[in-house]
Amino acid sequence: MTVAISVTDLVFGYQKGNFTLSCPHLRLEQGKLSLITGANGSGKTTLAKLICGILRPSGGSVQIFGQATSELSLGEIGRQVGYLFQDPSRQLFAGTVWKEMTFVDHLLESEQGTSTKKAQDLLDRFGLGELKSRSIYFLSGGEKQRLALCTILMGEPRFLILDEPTVGLDKQNRVILYDILDDLLREGRGIAVITHENELIERFAGAPQIKVERGQVSL
């Protein structure tokens, strides 16, 4: 078994308010799906943001694939761990579906031969192949989420963290999402899903559950 994420003696407090998160010990395995559950406002998203380096801990450490996040830049973390926001429109900004997929390449003016194919393949695989020239403002919630996932997968992260991915999705889109998760697992990726919805928890009933309650993380 490979450990993807390991957290030791993590402590974090927001500047505003008196909320603190503490996580003495946490291991997330590569190639498996783990559930991070708990009520709204319990600190699930905070934990995820700490793992991705969006927030920096006030004490303790987070390691991804053996490297401490404190020594990595956000860009370096992103190449290992992908993070899907609860509201995926927050991570889309390029105008059209295709521009979104190639945004980073354009920005860095890198070679586009291989990545164009990769972008096309990903869109096809997630059922967005026909929507290449569609404006991101005219995508449905489910389509936005799948596009955000595609942009994340462009960087080929080995591990994915999904923040409340079922919120705002109707039944049909939820089923599509579950199939995508199965698919990503078959590819050998590790996944952590943050959720407070029973349907998803029941769907992945065998998965290890990490509970977050009032800022306390426990297995």
Binding site: S73, G75, V81, R90, Q91, F93
Partner: peptide, 29 residues
């Protein structure tokens, strides 16, 4: 700032971008 974070997590090192590119990026965002 969320857009900036998402972009960095896609592997872009903001610090290594030239000033021109950075400005262009801010305009695009």
């Amino acid at each position: 700032s969320d857009a900036l974070i998402a972009l960095q997590l896609r592997g872009v090192e903001l610090k290594r971008l030239s000033l021109v590119k950075k400005l262009r990026l801010y305009r695009d965002l």
